[in-house]
Amino acid sequence: MKPKIEILEESDFKIRFILKNVSPALANSFRRAMKAEVPTLAVDYVDFYVNSSYLYDEILAHRLGMLPIKTDLEKFNMQNECVCGGEGCPNCQISFRLNVEGPKVVYSEDFISDDPEIVFAIDNIPVLELFEGQQLMLEAVARLGTGREHAKFQPVSVCAYKIIPEIEITEDCTLCKDCIEACPRDVLEAGGDKIAVKDVLNCSLCMECIKVCEQNAIKVNETNNFLFTVEATGALPLRVVMRKALEILRSKAEEMNKIIEEIQ
C-alpha cells in the first residue's frame, strides 16, 4: 500500500495530519528530520557596543538566539557550503541592529533588519526592559543552522506522533460498560448491542479497557497509521517544513547511492 498524508486540521502555527501506510521507521525519521535537519535562521553572534542595562551581555545574547526569524531558504546558504567559505557574507548571514535608550521595554519588532523581509517572526516578544539612563546598542548576526546543532534552529516546537490503533470488539461483549468508565480518553461508547468506538484518534493505547474487560472482548491492535501533531515557531510555514524534511531524507538516500556507484 502506498504512503499517504491526510491533513485533519491546519492553521498558521499548528497542523495535525495522519500519515498512513508507513513503517514506524519512516514515521520516526520524518519526525526527526523535521526537528533536527530542516535549517532555519537564528541569531548566533552578537556584537555589543553599549550595554548599560541590568542584564549581562551573555544573557541578552542567549535571549536573542531564542527569537524565531522568518526564514527564506532560497536566499541563504548554509555557512559551511557558502561561496565565502564560512567567513560570513550577505549570502549566508544577516544582521539586526538596535540602538535604544530607556526607559523602554525592547520588543522583537524594535530591531532593524538588513533585509525588510527577514524579520523576527513574532513582533511582540519582550527582550528586556531598559530604565532611565540605560542604553543598548548592538548588532546581532543571524545565520542558518539545524536543530541538531542547537535547539534555537528548530523550525518546530512540538513535533510528535502516536500510533492510531484499531480497536476491535468481539461478540463476547456483554455491554457491562466497565470499559467506558475505565477509559481516560473517552474513546468508547455504548452503541446497539455492544460497545462501539467513538473517537479512535483520542486513544493513547493505555490498554486500560483490556484490563477491566472480564470477557476479554476488546482487542487493541497497532496499525501503520500515525497521528502527527506539529506546531511551528513561525520561522517557516509548516508545509514547507514537512516538504523540506522529506526532501532532506530523499537527498541522503540519493547521496549514498551516488557514493556507492563511485565505489563500484
Binding site: K2, P3, K4, I5, L19, V22, L26, F30, R239, M242, R243, L246, E247, L249, R250, A253, E254, M256, N257, I260, E261, I263, Q264
Partner: peptide
C-alpha cells in the same frame, strides 16, 4: 551487498517522493 543497499535507498526515494507529492 552494495547492490542491496542501493536497492534499499531507491525504496526510500520512492516513499519520500509519494509523500512529497501530497503536501
Amino acid at each position: 551487498p552494495l547492490e542491496v543497499i542501493r536497492r534499499a535507498n531507491e525504496k526510500i526515494v520512492e516513499a519520500c517522493n509519494t509523500l512529497i507529492e501530497q503536501i
